[in-house]
Each structure stands twice: as structure tokens, then as C-alpha cells.
Design a protein around this nucleic acid. Structure first.
Lengths: 155, 155
DNA sequence: GGCTTACTACTCGGATACTGCTTGTCCGAGTTCAGGGGG
DNA sequence: CCCCCTGAACTCGGACAAGCAGTATCCGAGTAGTAAGCC
């Protein structure tokens, strides 16, 4: 159980877009920056567009651009955009199946297992929502050369 | 990104084994209790044996039995036994690849993205480790008939 | 009658197919820009 | 000289394959219990 690589790609791409600022950047250039397959990265970026994190402009000089500053983008936003907002624990309600399910009365409350897992799930999501991409960029800016390199590659 | 069904199966099976107490129970009977494919449940239970949560005894009258009380089994134990202890976020270090990777100096510290994701991961694991199966069983015992049904099915 | 022994039935355990999702690739619709022709 | 039009190049967007992990199944190794045979 692990999330797809698209999440890592999306985060780094969002950070790069913020560093370069300015107008939209095409998916090919964004992919070359980290040696990623361009067409597949494009697919992931479309997910970010659907989620409202990016805006896409077609045609020459087109590409993808941020719709809001990094301060307003949390890790949870990115993860949900790429992976969807499904729970980590897929409760199939097997407590209501099989011999036990047939004999037991219809359950009144929610499944205790499901509830416990949901608590952990919530802790994870809150930890993700508590960290914005802006904070991560601050960490990256500890290496001052970084900004120049990104701008030289994507500019 | 969601964990396999085996986790739900394992948790309910562990709870059932605790309720019935006594000697080992075969995988077929455990599977019938919730209408699960017996052979595949067997595969998952083997994972629990490897993790030390269950003990298996072969031959007739054999089966699986708990090795310690529910108080000493956390949700994290079960999840790690079934899913492995890999991180949710698979950092491929793409920051060191592509044009940016070639131009940037060798990174000194850990990846900021990886670190942020690891924090959320830790929050999730701590939430899982903070809940034992005994607490869940307490919830289930709110329905007093439950114990009798489990014993009648597995006895 | 008691003990030994062979047999049967039942269990786990690992090796073997199948399915669905993640990953990866390709081509078409749409738009901007450039260049040529006409007014 | 300025405007319009046509064409081309480049972009996103969704449709189309490949690979792999999760899912499901089956058969063999091993053991407890049983029943028959022997002392």
C-alpha cells in the first residue's frame, strides 16, 4: 500500500512552477526538469487542473500555471487531487456477511473497526493539511542556487 | 491508494479468535464466519504468523491461535503484518534526476518533501499504534449476543 | 486386554493462475503565431 | 504601409496498450487421531 509516484511529481512540479513564477510552462519542459515521462506527467497535471490547483492554457506558449500562491496549497490538496479522497481502509462490512452476519442482528451503530481506522486516517489527513507547500519551499531555499537553477531550466 | 482487504479480514479474525478463546481454529471455519475465500484468508493468516501475532498448528484439530492477549495487539501491528512496513509516500528522489538534478549540487540534507510526508506518515502510525484490539472488542461487546454467536459459529 | 502399526482424514504452507489498477504511450482538437497576399 | 487570411507548429486532453501488484485458487508435506492386527 503506497501512493503513486504522481504525488511526488506533482509536488516538485508545483514547487518549480512557483519558483519560476511568470507565465505557463509546458509539460515537456516540466518533465525534462526531473527526467520524467512527459505524457504521463501531463496526465497527472490534468488531475491538478480538475482539482483547481493549476490552470492550463492550450496552444503555443501555453502550458500550466498556478492558480494560487503556495501558502494556500497543502499537501492534502495535492494528495487528494492525485489519489482521490478515498479512505485508506476499505471497509467491506464483512461483519455483516457469512454465518456471523446471518445470525447477528442488523448492526445498530457504525463498525468499530471502521471507526478506529477512520481516526487514524483523520490524523494522517490533518498532518497533511497542516503543511503547506510554502513551508517546503522555505526549506528548499536553504540552497540559494536552487532558484537560479530552476529558472534557468524552465525559463 | 488503499490497503488490501486482508487487513479487515485479519482484524475481524483476530477478534473472533479472542472471543472464542480456547484452542486453535482452522482457516476454513474462520473464513466461513464472514463468507471469505478460505485459501486466501489462509495466506493472510500466514503473514500474521510470520509477524508473531498468531501461532499455527498443523494436522487435524489444528488451526490458528493467538500468541498474546488483545491488549498487546495494536492496529499498527496488524497493518504492518499484512501490508508491510513501507512508507506511504514512495520518495524516488526525483529532485536528483533530470536537468535540475544534473545542475544542482549533491543534496546535503534529506529531501524536504520526503520529510514532510514522513511526518504525516508518523502521525498515522502513532494513531494506529495508540489503539489496541482490546478497545475495539470492548466496543463490539456492547452487543451482548455477539460473543455467543461467535462461539456458536467457531466452537 | 494392551501395545504397536498402518491408514485415513484433516491441517497448514507454498507454488500456480487470474484480475484490476498503476504506469506508460499515442493521436486528435484547439489555439497562437508567423508569413504571405491583398487593399 | 496596414490589414486579412491561410498555414504550420505547438499545446493540452482524452483514448489506447503494457507491466505489475493484489486477488484468488489449487495441490503437496506433515501430523493427529483411529482402527485393525499382533503379542
Amino acid at each position: 500500500m503506497r501512493m503513486g509516484k504522481g504525488v511526488e511529481w506533482a509536488i516538485h512540479t508545483l514547487l518549480n512552477l512557483a519558483v519560476v513564477g511568470g507565465g505557463p510552462v509546458g509539460s515537456v519542459r516540466l518533465a525534462d526538469a526531473h527526467g520524467l515521462p512527459a505524457a504521463y506527467l501531463n496526465k497527472q497535471l490534468q488531475q491538478l487542473v480538475k482539482a483547481g490547483l493549476l490552470a492550463s492554457t492550450p496552444g503555443p506558449r501555453g502550458g500550466f500555471g498556478l492558480t494560487r500562491p503556495l501558502e494556500e496549497i497543502t499537501l492534502l490538496d495535492v494528495v487528494q487531487a492525485i489519489e482521490g479522497d478515498t479512505q485508506l481502509f476499505p471497509c467491506a462490512e464483512i461483519r455483516c456477511q457469512g454465518k456471523i452476519g446471518e445470525l447477528a442482528p442488523a448492526p445498530t451503530g457504525a463498525c468499530a473497526v471502521k471507526a478506529a481506522m477512520a481516526r487514524a486516517d483523520r490524523a494522517w489527513r490533518e498532518a497533511l493539511a497542516g503543511q503547506s507547500l510554502a513551508e517546503i519551499r522555505t526549506e528548499l531555499d536553504r540552497t540559494p542556487v536552487f532558484g537560479n537553477i530552476v529558472r534557468s531550466v524552465l525559463g
